[in-house]
Design a protein around this nucleic acid. Sequence first.
DNA 1: ACCTGAACACCGTTCAAGT
DNA 2: ACCTGAACACCGTTCAAGT
Lengths: 187, 187
Amino acid sequence: MPTPERTSIEAIVLAARELLESQGDAGLTMQAVADRVGVRAPSLYKRVRNRDDLVRIVAEATIQDLGAQLHAVPVTADVGQDLIEFAHAVRAFAHTRPNAFRLIIGTGPVAVPPDLDLITHALAPLFRIAADLAGPEHALDAARTLTAWAGGFITMELAGAFNLGGDVERAFDYGIAHLGRAFTAST
Amino acid sequence: MPTPERTSIEAIVLAARELLESQGDAGLTMQAVADRVGVRAPSLYKRVRNRDDLVRIVAEATIQDLGAQLHAVPVTADVGQDLIEFAHAVRAFAHTRPNAFRLIIGTGPVAVPPDLDLITHALAPLFRIAADLAGPEHALDAARTLTAWAGGFITMELAGAFNLGGDVERAFDYGIAHLGRAFTAST
DNA sequence: ACCTGAACACCGTTCAAGT
DNA sequence: ACCTGAACACCGTTCAAGT
């Protein structure tokens, strides 16, 4: 006797993302997700292996969203300007969904790492910029330097590590400008 | 009738640090700490407000250790070389105590933020380098760029985000070299 | 004054029993 | 085939009772 499906993986993931952002990682409990989608907690295990798996799915969905934002940044003739727009897009994304962003920086508590291809595809626009700035043979190194800086800066900003005074906005722009110049200078 | 003290805050913090490094954040439970110091879990609350407080103390102890390592880096006439040694010291520290390092990057699960003065003092050598490289008026911006890059790079490395091939070591040195040049170029 | 067992409110997860 | 209640092994934390 089949029972009608009372929820879906999509509803579960949506509930998990909303809970993560509104209540933090500790608020993302199987109980709370179940309540939100209208079933009992054990039912979730029909659609999801366990909590770690659910968190991994949320992380991957976030990577895809971030990738879409980055692919939407227009490509102009000025690579330096593109880098600025790109960096601001990442930062804006992180500010609207800080908890999800922490998840994909490798800093948040993700037990199961997200799919590598997803990350590669999401960051494809960055590799274009890095290659244009530093030349094809240093593209990977340059891309890593840029992601490390952006990820580190935004993580620290979200953690409130920049309370020493000074303008955080200006420090971010200072970083972009000097990084952009650093690569171009050594082509 | 006083009972003899069967443990101490020092023993508790030591146990917590060992557990964090060997078992990860999830393994750092009040139960496990109590077992290790030879009391029952409720007794810990005589020395520590709660688990979040214990984690904060561990984070602060880690900042002090990192600060000691950084202050031990010799100051030479070549600021560029100092920066290289400094960055390598941070990375070496992170590799020996990855879980504790994550705690102080603002990426790990620290509910209560560590004392700001501790961080300022620990990073004092960096500010010297930043001021020498970028000039006193841009010292803060430069220091933030450097810490963001180093913290982000090492965090991603520890999370295994650099599996795209290529030499991680080389990417790190590439980052130092270009950052060092970037600031000096614009003095 | 410190330590303890017992208890409480939570977790994630499993599983037999329902429909 | 999906959903559920009950149960299990864990958490962190409180507190009255011991010494």
